[in-house]
């Protein structure tokens, strides 16, 4: 298990962002840069959670479809969104599109519920609890609502497993 080593700190600095109406966050230290939405080249036949390649100053990043990873309906925000590029230690050249970038928030450990602790508090708000369990490392109770903390290191493995998006999320 690659539980972040800095769990000892009292506060965690989380970069929050929005997908549709849901607020998520990742460890700010895992982010390499945030840039405006960039043209993305789709990769036919790639797993469904792959959006494609983006070229960022000569370096290619693989953009994952975060909504599909966390079981949200496809985002149609398209060009208005942002690109979050992660550090190399998160995974090989990986990035995600998000709809909006939120604040950087320092969250005390005491306000974070671990999903495995049985603290399903806020589970109603998370879109599809079953499928995103794997990516969610905590749910923070903020003054203005909940924030689901994701572990970006698990994005690539989750993509590779090809979590079947059709089973979840979608109301069929």
């Amino acid at each position: 298990m690659t539980e972040p080593a800095h769990a000892a700190c009292d506060h965690r600095l989380i970069c929050s962002f929005w997908l549709d109406a849901y607020r998520f966050g990742v460890d700010a230290a895992a982010i390499r840069e945030v840039s405006a939405h960039t043209a993305c080249t789709p990769i036919p036949l790639a797993p469904p959670a792959v959006r494609g390649y983006v070229n960022l100053r000569g370096h290619l990043y693989l953009v994952l479809d975060l909504p599909s990873l966390v079981g949200l309906p496809a985002s149609d925000a398209g060009a208005s969104g942002y690109l979050i590029v992660f550090q190399a230690r998160v995974g090989e050249s990986v990035a995600v599109f998000v709809d909006r970038i939120g604040d950087m928030v320092a969250i005390g450990e005491d306000r974070i519920d671990r999903p495995k602790d049985g603290a399903a508090g806020g589970g109603n708000e998370a879109p599809s609890q079953t499928c995103i369990d794997d990516l969610v490392v905590g749910i923070a109770r903020l003054d203005d609502g909940l924030l689901t903390i994701l572990e970006p290191r698990r994005f690539l493995p989750a993509m590779a497993r090809g979590i079947n998006v059709e089973v979840m999320g979608r109301s069929s």
Partner: peptide
């Protein structure tokens, strides 16, 4: 085609 279908929503499983 899968690439072109992208905006049409989620792609089916491989």
């Amino acid at each position: 085609a899968a690439g072109a279908a992208e905006d049409g929503g989620r792609r089916a499983e491989d």
